[in-house]
Nucleic acid binder design. Structure first.
Lengths: 116, 116
DNA sequence: TATAGTGTGTAGTATATACTACACATGAAT
DNA sequence: ATTCATGTGTAGTATATACTACACACTATA
């Protein structure tokens, strides 16, 4: 499943229950031209920029980080986190690159329970 | 200290001990025009692309991740890590955003000692 | 049967990114 | 005194990114 397909699929599903999810109305809410959204959904054009992806995924109730990833991007907010302490986070991410999901999740929980 | 200044400072220091670190020779090794490196060092132009930053930081013995960060970038290798599991790493990074260095380092060590 | 709404086709534009090619002036080396 | 190497100035180019504006044909609605 690519970016455009996922947007179309999600939007059509939403549209089947609420007319406000027509391509045109969705495009207007998101702040882009309908023709542009049309082309995005049919992969005639590459995914849009970060801001549009954010609005779109929020509008359709999709995970923004996942949508950005499907578009080949990473949120500038997360980039900022890395750039603020590049050595530290570069090291961590490289270590975690091949760690299984549950191991990473364990860390997330550990940090959440604030042990410092 | 900005990107250009750091490059110049490091290069001049190296040059004082080895003539091969002249602006021209360094530029040739890195594969760019001397005039371009000159402009980068004097911040007349913004930092170069990732590939040039990598070659440059290796040539000058600087940390690539730090150099990329100073250039407002993050290595595509690390981006790939995040994009491969966006929900997971987004969560982790947001949790760690305001964690102190030693707490993050503790995690790095923990992971390095492979506990999964 | 108007008209309102739907998705799509065509033909662009604006801005940023990442550089190149070559000439020039100054100082160091031979 | 000449050549050689140094850093810099000028004037561009190529490519990618992120869209807009408007017209068209078809479908559903009133």
């Amino acid at each position: 499943m690519n970016f455009g397909e996922l947007v179309r699929k999600s939007r059509l599903k939403a549209q089947s229950e609420d007319r406000k999810y027509s391509l045109r109305k969705t495009a207007v809410r998101v702040g882009i031209q309908p023709s542009y959204l049309s082309k995005i959904e049919r992969e005639e054009l590459p995914p849009p920029g970060e801001e549009v992806i954010c609005k779109l995924s929020e509008d359709l109730g999709l995970d923004t980080d996942v949508m950005l990833a499907m578009a080949g991007k990473v949120s500038t907010e997360l980039l900022e986190v890395i750039r603020s302490r590049p050595e530290l986070f570069a090291k961590l991410l490289r270590e975690l690159k091949s760690a299984p999901d549950h191991a990473v999740l364990k860390l997330v929980r550990e940090v959440r329970d604030g042990e410092w």
